[in-house]
Design a protein around this nucleic acid. Structure first.
Lengths: 343, 343
DNA sequence: TCTTAGCACTCTCATAGTGGGAGTGCTAAC
DNA sequence: GTTAGCACTCCCACTATGAGAGTGCTAAGA
């Protein structure tokens, strides 16, 4: 266990390093954070902390920087509960109180404000469609030979596809078909739907095979898509403002990962699985490209239903207190967004 | 006018510089491109070309690099018509012959393959919604108090919004209302629609004011949105592979511009306004952030209707012949995509 | 036993000097 | 008009060099 003074030294080092991005020396601590002891004493404490794994030394005669473990200790036990400035809260509210009624748009505003408020890279994962439930499906005739197929999930997420319409099928037939299907499938998970629809197709609706096939393929595409949850990102350019990413190769690695959605989904999904705000520090993510980064994320719901996950990716040396607070704030505003609008 | 030998020197310099990213010296040209004259003669030609504005010298005793004007001359008059390798053509075909029936998805595949095939940053602008024509609008009742409003444009672009549904309105009423509206508005530009719908609302349909207001606001949002055309990008990370963007600040400036959609829209829109492939070189774009880049772009249509613009952003020192060919290839495949599917 | 001052030591970083290499422009001869 | 020769310029990579920051250790003091 860390005694009181070690804790104060650790906190000082984390906070100073977060602020300056420079390794912190014993003199600096003695001067700026008045612990009432001399640099020599602090040096001893730092040597202890290093041995215990909380600190690292870039090279023999540099100051110390926090290790992953050091950050972890700070985040779990030392980090102050931060209340956001009125302006930040205000800007978040404003961004999410737009009059938009479309979830996709709302998410896009959210990811942007998340990045603006933290100055880091913000990421949002759309709803996990495989877990979504069928709400309804409908076909909108466009012209003689084609129609727009529309799938709505319980969260209000919309997927559409252009399909061929058999010429011998009237608009009423089409509408009736999907009315019927919608009644039969409502509330089922999309995966179950695909099975169920196949059964229905074979048993009773074989007359409408071609249209049904298209409907099935939309259902399957929606669930099985490698791109299961859509990924929204904002603020990639901001990464470069961090001194630790001025190294082009690091920056490139991170960018590459962000563009390669699947890795991103995996990382965020494995970290975030509840509505509390969680932090993954450096190597904890297990992904090589972002071993110098931390990820702060949580799930969010819109109008009371689980809608996705939001996360901020920044350098390990990030302002965890602030980022956590911002993430929490955006999360809570999203939950209540649209509520008065539509369910 | 440039005499034959000057032209050959210019071509050699452009092509060598594109290949190596190093200023090209007279010796190199004499050795690699057998013009049958000595370095000294080439030096004289280069001095002339520099005076005429086609070449630049990074510093007194370096080789020459092409100026914007030099590239321009090359692109306009020297660039060979390149036929793409079978593999590249194949990969483009494959990417765009996916079974998807949704325009948005198709565009996403297109932007990805555009970047993969060129190794530069690829950009696609979605259809210009203000120029789009109304095809139909429809409302899908979701539950007692809400419905999904769907707007389809002639190109097959879909916009949706969640709206409140007056409790006293039956599903049939709702459907009838939009059937009627769709008949009245079909073929009009979205802007005209907004006006027209207002008139209709005031003259005949004032009973449905609340729903109509929502429909109007969707129409307006679709046209007036600052984000008029949606911007799709792919391959940002690839920018860093270019030696000229290993300078973090340059890379950041470009990335920043890419994230700031509006500038991007403006640049692409001002360059590209026809179905031929156009090239904008360096300063020609007039945008500071990309003065070291060139943009190759064109309009494309899907299923015979103008659908958007596609562009590749790379360093000035890019392989213009190849990029032009790729852009043209993607453009042509897009035009014929979906054609057999739905119109 | 804990704390502290002192000091030698290490390591980085910015600076300046140096030499090689690449390329030029000019001149004079072909 | 072309070419060889040559002096000149400029960049760049390499190597000191020294200042600065910070450490660990030791020994003395509380």
């Amino acid at each position: 266990m860390l005694d009181d003074r070690k804790v104060r030294v650790l906190r000082a080092i984390v906070e100073d390093y977060v602020l300056t991005a420079e390794p912190v020396g014993s003199r600096t601590i003695a001067r700026k954070y008045n612990l009432g002891v001399s640099p020599a004493t602090i040096r001893n404490e730092m040597a202890d902390l290093e041995e215990m794994g909380y600190l690292e030394q870039p090279h023999t005669s540099a100051g110390r920087i926090p290790s992953d473990l050091g950050y972890r200790y700070y985040v779990d036990r030392l980090m102050p509960e931060q209340t956001l400035s009125a302006e930040v809260v205000e800007s978040i509210h404003q961004a999410l109180e737009q009059k938009t009624r479309e979830i996709q748009d709302l998410i896009q505003y959210a990811v942007r404000v998340l990045s603006d408020a933290t100055n880091y890279l913000a990421l949002v994962l759309g709803p996990q469609l495989s877990a979504a439930r069928f709400h309804r499906m409908s076909a909108l005739p466009l012209d003689a030979g084609s129609a727009l197929l529309i799938l709505v999930t319980d969260v209000g997420f919309v997927e559409t596809a252009l399909i061929n319409k058999p010429v011998d099928m009237t608009d009423d037939d089409l509408q009736g078909l999907f009315e019927y299907l919608s009644r039969r499938l409502r509330g089922l998970s999309l995966e179950t739907c695909a099975h169920e629809a196949t059964t229905i197709l074979n048993s009773e609706l074989s007359a409408y095979r071609s249209v049904m096939e298209e409907a099935l393929s939309l259902l399957r595409a929606t669930t099985e898509d490698e791109g299961e949850e859509r990924v929204y990102a904002s603020g990639t350019a901001r990464l470069f403002e961090q001194p630790e990413f001025r190294d082009v190769d690091k920056a490139k690695a991170i960018l590459g990962m962000v563009e390669h959605d699947q890795t991103l989904r995996d990382v965020i999904n494995s970290l975030v699985n509840e509505e509390t705000v969680l932090v993954s520090i450096g190597g904890e993510t297990g992904v090589r490209e972002i071993r110098d980064c931390s990820l702060v994320g949580t799930m969010f719901s819109i109008g009371g239903r689980a809608a996705g996950k939001l996360a901020v990716l920044g350098p390990k040396r990030m302002d965890y207190a602030k980022v956590t607070a911002v993430v929490r704030c955006v999360q809570s505003r999203l939950s209540s967004a649209l509520r008065k609008g539509a369910g």
